[in-house]
Design a protein around this nucleic acid. Structure first.
Lengths: 156, 156
DNA sequence: GTCCTTAAGTTGACTCACTCAAGACAACAC
DNA sequence: GTGTTGTCTTGAGTGAGTCAACTTAAGGAC
C-alpha cells in the first residue's frame, strides 16, 4: 500500500525497506507515539522488527526530515510525521496525551525573545501544559469523591 | 550562612538539613545545572552527600515550589531556583547552555493556543532554540575552514 | 537539656530509554 | 543475475533516574 512512502523515502535518499514502511504506517495512524509503542504496533505488520531497528528507522526519518521528534518534559521521546509547518503541542499533565495546535504566527521562529542574549534563535518551541477534557472530568469526580470524605484536594 | 534558606525550607514545611542547604547553595550560584553537577558541587560543601540524596532533595524542592525542573529535549533535567515569574529559556543547540528570557507577557499561561482542543491550559512553556554567541563564532570558523576544502556546510 | 517521633539521607539493587558494534541480510544499480 | 553497501538483527552496554530497607538526625514535647 502507501506507495507515497516509497517515493518520499527514495527522494530523501533512503532505501525502501519493510521496517521503514511499517514505522511510517504506524506514525501515519498514531501521531505522537513513543518508540516502544511504534515497535509494538509495527510488529503487527512486520513481526520480526527489532526495537533497535525502530530506533534506527526513526533516527533516519528524523535525519531525513520526514519525521519530527518531540520530548515533553518528564516523558519519553515521541515522534510525528507532521513536519515543516511549525505547529506546537498541547500536553495533558494527567495522562500525557498530546494534541497538535496550529501556530498562530506562521513560520519558525514564530516568536522572538525579549532579549536574545546574543543567541541566534531559529526556532521557538511552544508547549501548552494543562488537562485534557477527559482528565478534567476525572479530576473533578475524584475531587468530589474525596473532598467530602477527607477534605483532600489540590495536587499540583 | 544563607539563613534565608532556613526560613524558606521551614515555611515550605521541610526540615532544614545540610544536604538541602548545600543543594540550594549550588543552585543559587549555578542556575540551570543537572543533578550530577549539583551532586559534584554540593560535595565541596558536604562531602558525604549521595547522588540519591541529591535526587531526593531536588524532588522535595520542586514539590515545595522552591525550585523548577526544566528538561530541554535531548538533554538531562536541569534545575533552577527562579520560580513563579513565568520566564522562558534560550537553549544553545551547540553546547547546550541555557539562558533565561523574561516573559514578554507576564503571568502564566502567557500565551493561549489558537485551538485548545478541550484542554484547560495552565502554562505555556516556551523554549527558544538557537546558537549562543560562542557557538556562532566556532561554527563560522569551522565553516570557513572546511567549506573551502570540502564544500561542507549546512547542518540542520 | 533529654527523649522520642518521624522526616530525610545512605546504600545498593534495579528499571527504562536509548546507544554502540559486529555480523547477516536485502535493496537496488549495473 | 551479480556485487556493493546501506540497513536490520542480535547482544552487550551506558547513564539518568527510581525503589526499598535500613540508619541517621531534625525538631517538637517534656
Amino acid at each position: 500500500m502507501e506507495t507515497a512512502w516509497d517515493d518520499q523515502l527514495r527522494t530523501a535518499g533512503l532505501r525502501v525497506t519493510r521496517p521503514r514502511l511499517s514505522v511510517l504506517g504506524v506514525l501515519a495512524e498514531h501521531p505522537h507515539v513513543d518508540a516502544d509503542t511504534i515497535a509494538t504496533a509495527a510488529r503487527a505488520v512486520h513481526p520480526s522488527i527489532s526495537p533497535q531497528a525502530v530506533y534506527g528507522v526513526l533516527k533516519a526519518l528524523v535525519g531525513a526530515g520526514m519525521a519530527r521528534r518531540i520530548e515533553p518534559a518528564g516523558g519519553t521521546a515521541r515522534y510525528e510525521l507532521r513536519v515543516g509547518d511549525n505547529h506546537h503541542h498541547l500536553v495533558c499533565r494527567g495522562c500525557g496525551v498530546i494534541a497538535d495546535v496550529d501556530c498562530v504566527v506562521g513560520a519558525a521562529p514564530c516568536l522572538a525573545p525579549s532579549d536574545a542574549a546574543g543567541f541566534a534563535v531559529d526556532e521557538a518551541e511552544v508547549v501548552f501544559w494543562g488537562l485534557c477534557a477527559d482528565c478534567q472530568v476525572a479530576r473533578r469526580q475524584h475531587s468530589n469523591a474525596t473532598s467530602t470524605a477527607t477534605g483532600e484536594g489540590v495536587r499540583s
